[in-house]
């Protein structure tokens, strides 16, 4: 014990200043990292856009082949009335599909957790729906379903619901065995067990599924619209891209594309924020480590 004491004392006096330097270095690295976290993506993104612009100017690329970033931006502003309307349609379908996917996915997962027979009976359908590419089912859906919005919604839902179902099912089954025994000892009803134990345990899994499903709902909505094809009032961004492509209106294609990408990022940021807010108090994934 004394030997250890003296050796640590010796090392701390010998290497005292070095330790401080080390600490300072770590602190400096942390500061640099916190700035870089924001600065780097912005700088690199700006450089990429600048290079895109130079590429167009230096090579004299015509705007119907590759429009410069400036032209895309001005198109975005000019065509805002058309594009914003389309954006709203796409957003609406995505949001509705996600909402139905959450309700359907969670509902089915709860059913599976309550009854193994239900799971045996219905999980093949869920898997088949998931593994069949939506592009190949969509034409059939639009043949059978007259209402365009309902068809789009169905397509987006098929793509989005599976990760929620799979994750939530896994989460409901991942409850602590001892807690589950405790509920049995307390003679908790099924409903109590579900509410007090299984649903909270499944929450982190569900939120993980939600983050995937948010992106997939957008993909589903866009792909379905490509297949549905019909235009006019009530068309989403995908249709505007198709239409602009036929007319060789490349700047508008880019503008619509940017809106879709922006929507995707927004959905991801929102679901990530929801996840963080719901879990920050207790779940490992949301805790800060020193």
């Amino acid at each position: 014990m004394t030997a250890i004491d003296s050796s640590t004392a010796a090392s701390s006096t010998d290497k005292g200043p070095m330790f401080d330097e080390e600490e300072e270095r770590i602190a400096r690295a942390k500061r640099v990292e916190s700035v870089a976290k924001w600065a780097l993506p912005i700088i690199v993104m700006s450089l990429a856009i600048w290079y895109w612009d130079r590429l167009v100017v230096w090579n004299d690329i015509p705007h119907y082949v590759l429009p410069g970033p400036g032209l895309v931006l001005s198109t975005l502003i000019e065509d805002w009335p058309i594009l914003s309307e389309a954006l709203l349609v796409t957003l609406k379908i995505t949001a509705m599909a996600l909402a139905v996917a959450v309700a359907g996915g969670v509902g089915l997962a709860v059913l599976f957790a309550q009854s193994r027979f239900a799971e045996m009976s219905f999980s093949p359908f869920a898997v088949i729906l998931q593994v069949t590419p939506i592009v190949s089912i969509a034409p059939l859906i639009f043949i059978y379903i007259d209402n365009r919005i309902v068809g789009l919604l169905l397509c987006a839902w098929i793509v989005a619901f599976f990760p929620i179902l799979a994750n939530t099912t896994l989460g409901l089954k991942s409850t602590d065995h001892n807690l589950s025994d405790l509920m049995t000892i307390y003679r908790a009803s099924r409903w109590q067990r579900l509410r007090y134990l299984q649903l909270p345990s499944a929450l982190p899994y569900f939120l993980g599924g939600l983050r995937i499903a948010g992106g997939l709902a957008l993909i589903g909505a866009v792909v379905a619209e490509y297949v549905a094809g019909t235009g006019g009032i009530g068309s989403g961004l995908a249709f505007r891209i198709l239409e602009a492509g036929y007319r060789l209106n490349i700047p508008r294609m880019f503008a619509a594309l940017i809106l879709i990408a922006g929507t995707g990022v927004l959905i991801f940021a929102t679901t990530t924020l929801i996840s963080h807010l719901a879990l920050r108090k207790w779940h490992e994934s949301a805790l800060k480590r020193d």
Binding site: D176, N178, L182, Y186, A188, Y196, P200, W282, H283
Partner: peptide, 20 residues
């Protein structure tokens, strides 16, 4: 193991048998 519900506070954990 302590077998506590990580999403619940200490008070809520101790409340569980009453809650049921």
């Amino acid at each position: 193991e302590p077998t506590l519900m990580p999403w619940a506070t200490v008070e809520q954990n101790v409340w569980l048998p009453f809650r049921v």
